[in-house]
Design a protein around this nucleic acid. Structure first.
Length: 294
DNA sequence: TAAGATAAGAGGGACAT
DNA sequence: ATGTCAGTCTTATCTTA
């Protein structure tokens, strides 16, 4: 099988790399990430490893800080004399205190842990989480967090990261996993867009279609046909200003009906998280624009 | 029982005041 | 900053096939 469009996306649901155009799973990224050396004992592994954990925006100090550990021996394993022990105790104490010293650091360390929890609940891949962390840092630097809820800002950053990376997650889905409500999260999200001058790519209905299709019983053929219809709808400019999710839902419903797949509006509405009425309206638009008579 | 029709209300963008 | 307006989507209810 060969996919020409190469319009690939890292599917966060399955962890696969798939083509957004045709749904082909491309699993050929066989890069070996293991070491090129062999080691037979733990000591050998320790001495041969040349790297530590990666630096990450998800850790408040990017994981690069030096930590004075609670071991009372020096680099050669010799015990530290009694008279110096107190000195090390004080050093360690200030090492810990200085790490999370400023309020922004405390805020960030709290936020990163909240982000971790939220992204985990939503099964979001690492790159989205990292992206959200970068946005949060920018917001914090511009003083946009103060006076707002950390949890809401974290949710807003995560949503922004999803939009930026074209990872299909709706605001409602994020709201369900966050203790803050949709109104607040969306307000903060809009504020982020404005203050940080973020430009988001427009969500395409055909990218969210597989998400709906995976929740209802639809054949691969019908999915492809629905995507075709969406392309046509876009060309006819009847998608502008419409929720991509409802466009996709309506296209899927239309295709099912044309192919004698007796799926109900209710089922699709549930899978797409839109109402039946909205599906009906979009369905009507599609039928009219495409001159279809079913 | 699913699908269609209709109406009222919420919330946000554009624009004016 | 606040108000208005058109347009979208939701919720609710009734009718039709």
């Amino acid at each position: 099988m060969e996919c020409r469009s190469r319009n690939i996306i890292n599917d966060p649901e399955s962890g696969e790399i798939v083509c957004r155009g045709c749904g082909l799973v491309i699993s050929e990224s066989n890069i070996s990430v293991g070491p090129e050396w062999r080691a037979f004992t733990q000591t050998e592994r320790d001495t041969r490893a040349r790297t530590g954990p990666p630096s990450s925006f998800l850790i408040y100090d990017k994981g690069l800080s030096t930590v004075i550990g609670p071991v009372y021996s020096d680099a050669y394993g010799r015990r530290i004399p009694q008279e110096n022990k107190l000195q090390f105790f004080r050093l360690r104490k200030w090492n810990i205190r200085s790490r999370v010293h400023y309020s922004t650091d405390r805020n960030l360390s709290q936020a990163m842990s909240d982000l971790d929890i939220l992204a985990g609940k939503l099964h979001l891949p690492f790159n989205v989480k990292e992206n959200a962390a970068v946005i949060y840092r920018k917001a914090l630097k511009k003083g946009l967090i103060r006076g707002r809820s950390i949890l809401s800002m974290v949710a807003a950053c995560l949503y922004a990261a999803c939009r930026e990376t074209q990872t299909p997650r709706t605001l409602v889905e994020i709201e369900r996993c966050s203790p803050r409500d949709k109104k607040e999260i969306s307000r903060d999200y809009r504020m982020l867009l404005k203050e940080l001058n973020l430009r988001m790519p427009v969500q395409k209905a055909k990218y969210v279609l597989p998400k709906i299709a995976s929740k209802v019983e639809v054949s691969e053929k019908i999915q492809r046909k629905a995507i075709e219809i969406l392309g046509e709808a876009e060309r006819l400019k009847i998608t502008v200003g419409k929720d991509p999710m409802s466009m996709a839902a309506a296209a899927l419903y239309l295709t099912c009906k044309m192919n004698k797949n007796s799926i109900t509006q209710k089922d699709i509405a549930e899978a797409a998280d839109v109402t039946e009425v909205t599906i009906r309206n979009r369905y009507k638009d599609l039928k009219k624009a495409l001159n279809l008579d079913i």
